[in-house]
């Protein structure tokens, strides 16, 4: 049984904000103030070595939650225990053991080569020369930064900057890494390199990763998914469970040699039909697969196709279900 590294207990946070009361020039003068509830009783825990994806729409409270976990923002209610210490009170002590990549806020010095920021990290985290050289070599190789890291940051592409931000955050081999929207502006090849790095670090150092994103393709790396909506956790389970709980629909397409007289409505919703073709939406939980296959085996089937709903579809379904409630 792995130890719990992070414990988030009943976090509440609200911000005072305003909206314009009128249009045009006067809009900035006439304001209607109100409280925006960013987090509404969020609780969960994370075990050592886990990769957890915090998924949610824009404004669902993910980034606020990460900043509260990091001890940057003070919660109105609740507390966060990181390495069994209150993250707000002991931020400076525990910050030695965490790494952070905030997608919107890079930590590289814009006008200097990335290596200068890496050297600053070496001083901050008191990394010895040998370890620094070894780790730098390792990260540079895995992220393909050989031709990049000695270049001025402002001349780098967004993806290159992001990869260098990863290096700056990981050089001290933190126990837990927070990645807040880490793939903003990153191309598919760089994304793969970053995912490889995350997996390698998880295996090599037992590093825990908490990844926040609104990009669904990014979560396939996660062991567990925590979905947030309107400041609340609406799903917290393994990726497979997500598929099982909400992805029960299957689309079956069949091509026959000749037409048949079977009433397909008994098995599911007929989406499309032709004299030798049928497209059905079936419920994988209710339909008896064996029975269905035995019926089909009596038919002269030329070809078939069974497709599962995509991740996007599942996520949308969860949000819609919660919103209806």
């Amino acid at each position: 049984m792995e130890e719990t590294i992070l414990e988030v207990n009943n976090i509440h946070k609200k911000f005072k904000t305003y909206e314009a009361k009128s249009k045009g020039f006067l809009a900035s003068l006439r304001r209607k103030y109100f409280w925006k509830f960013a987090l509404n009783g969020v609780s969960f825990s994370v075990k050592k070595g886990e990769i957890v994806a915090l998924l949610g729409k824009n404004g669902s409270g993910k980034s606020t939650l990460i900043k509260i976990i990091l001890g940057i923002i003070y919660p109105d209610k609740g507390n966060v225990q990181l390495f069994n210490l209150d993250s707000w009170k002991y931020r400076q002590i525990i910050s030695k053991d965490f790494g952070v990549v905030l997608g919107a806020h890079g930590q590289l010095y814009w006008n200097l080569p990335a290596i200068d920021t890496f050297k600053l990290m070496k001083s901050i985290y008191k990394i010895n020369d040998r370890d620094f050289e070894e780790r730098l070599k390792y990260f540079v190789k895995i992220l393909h930064l050989q031709q990049v890291y000695k270049r001025q940051v402002r001349t780098m592409s967004l993806g290159e900057q992001m990869k260098c931000n990863f290096v700056a955050s990981l050089l001290h081999i933190p126990k837990i890494v927070f990645l807040d929207e880490p793939t903003i502006g990153v191309d598919i090849i760089s994304k793969l390199a970053l995912k490889n790095l995350i997996r390698e670090m998880q295996q090599k150092y037992k590093t825990t990763f908490i990844l926040t994103t609104h990009i669904i393709e990014d979560i396939d790396i996660a062991d567990r998914i925590i979905m947030m909506d309107r400041g609340k956790v609406i799903f917290n389970n393994k990726f497979e469970k997500l598929q099982y709980a909400f992805g029960n629909k299957r689309i079956i397409e069949l091509y026959f040699k000749k037409p048949n007289a079977i009433n397909y409505k008994n098995y599911g919703k007929v989406l499309k039909s032709d004299f030798n073709y049928i497209k059905l939406e079936v419920n994988a939980k209710t339909i008896k697969t064996n029975k269905f296959i035995s019926i089909l085996s009596d038919l002269n089937i030329l070809d078939y196709k069974i497709s599962e709903p995509g991740l996007n579809e599942i996520i949308l379904k969860i949000y819609n279900k919660k919103n209806r409630k």
Partner: peptide, 14 residues
């Protein structure tokens, strides 16, 4: 204003 304080505050440096 731009949120850069977050990056500076998470380092184990005053």
């Amino acid at each position: 204003k731009n949120g850069g304080i977050a990056i500076n505050m998470i380092r184990s440096v005053n």
